[in-house]
């Protein structure tokens, strides 16, 4: 069952990602980004990472993309003033390099082999929560400082007059 679902959700994720980078209007891109994020969340469920799947939907689709849509509506660039994309030599080279990157990952993962561990519950809320509040407590607490800095920085940058 897993291979079929993997192909379905993987195709949705890749198709959504391609639509994100090819749409002209950022609002269409943001909506396709939601599609990609949900497909990736489904892939997390396939790998038994239930906690991360929930966080993916709540934090990414629920907060980050909403932030994007807020900003798109806030600055509201008229369609005729959207940047016109032209194919230049440098840009073509960049796309070529990205294609090579994909090809390289295909070659590298073809012979990927790793010993399989005994089946343990590694992605459940219980397991991740226990790890976060014991072994990784310091990193988890520093994360809160990072988020605080991001909140203060975002307000300071976007405010008209401080």
């Amino acid at each position: 069952m897993e291979p079929i679902l993997f192909v379905i959700f993987g195709a949705i994720a890749v198709g959504g990602a391609i639509m994100v980078v090819t749409r002209r209007h950022p609002m269409a891109s943001a909506l396709y980004l939601i599609l990609t994020l949900f497909a990736v969340a489904a892939l997390f469920v396939l790998r038994q990472a239930h906690f991360l799947a929930a966080i993916q939907v709540i934090v990414y689709a629920g907060a980050v993309v909403v932030l994007f849509i807020f900003v798109i509506m806030l600055i509201n660039v008229p369609v005729h003033k959207l940047p016109v994309e032209r194919v230049t030599g440098l840009r073509f080279l960049g796309v070529l390099a990205a294609g090579l990157l994909i090809l390289e990952s295909a070659v590298l993962t073809r012979r990927f082999a790793m010993p399989r561990a005994s089946a343990v519950d590694a992605g459940s809320v219980q397991a991740v929560g226990k790890a976060l509040f014991t072994d990784y407590l310091l990193a988890f607490e520093i994360t809160s400082v990072l988020l605080l800095a991001a909140v203060i920085g975002a307000i300071a940058l976007a405010k008209k007059k401080i």
Binding site: A17, I102, S105, A106, T109
Partner: peptide, 19 residues
């Protein structure tokens, strides 16, 4: 297969950033 998908998603992101 997941690592290949991961590489493809990363590559598409790179295309978006450079192009």
């Amino acid at each position: 297969a997941y690592l290949l998908l991961s590489g493809i998603l990363f590559g598409i992101g790179v295309v978006g950033v450079v192009a």
